[in-house]
């Protein structure tokens, strides 16, 4: 896959930049051009905002059957996390005892390696989550 495909997502993947609708205040991650709540009233009013990185596990799984690029990580915990700003994201939970993962668990974003383009290709990074207090 071309390198720019990963570069252009860096603000959101590295620093959790989402968008806030200037009309209704709803926060979306990743950033949207149009607010799903307000439609055309939001066009041109979407502001860039950085998420705190703190959230709560809504659901989770342990992936045993992984794509080739994630073979080295398996089994790994994947979760949907509700951020304290209200939007939800999907990523892995790391630095955790699998037996301790549960719905409602508090987590925080951590900067991690997501994968690479084969043995000699570009390595791409982004957020995963780890337990927080």
């Amino acid at each position: 896959m071309a390198i720019p495909r990963f570069w252009r997502e860096i603000p959101s993947r590295y620093n959790l930049y989402g968008s806030k609708c200037g009309h209704c205040g709803t926060l979306d991650f990743p950033p949207r051009t149009v607010c799903p709540e307000c439609g055309r009233r939001s066009i041109g009013k979407m502001e860039s905002v950085k998420l705190s990185g703190r959230g709560t596990v809504v659901s989770w799984t342990v992936i045993h059957d992984a794509p080739a690029a994630y073979e080295m990580m398996k089994p790994y915990v994947l979760a949907i996390v509700e951020m304290e700003e209200g939007c939800r994201v999907t990523s892995q939970i790391v630095d955790v005892d699998r037996a301790a993962v549960k719905i409602g668990m508090r987590v925080e974003a951590a900067f991690r390696r997501l994968g690479s383009e084969g043995d000699a290709g570009v390595i791409h990074y982004g957020y995963k989550f780890r337990p927080s207090t």
Binding site: W60, T61, I63, D65, L78, T90
Partner: peptide, 29 residues
Amino acid sequence: EILSATADQEWESVFGATFAGLYAMMARR
């Protein structure tokens, strides 16, 4: 991987989500 391409490639699959993994999270919930 091809089945997973019907989910969101940039905001699910890139983070290690598989097609089965996404349905597993529905099941868990």
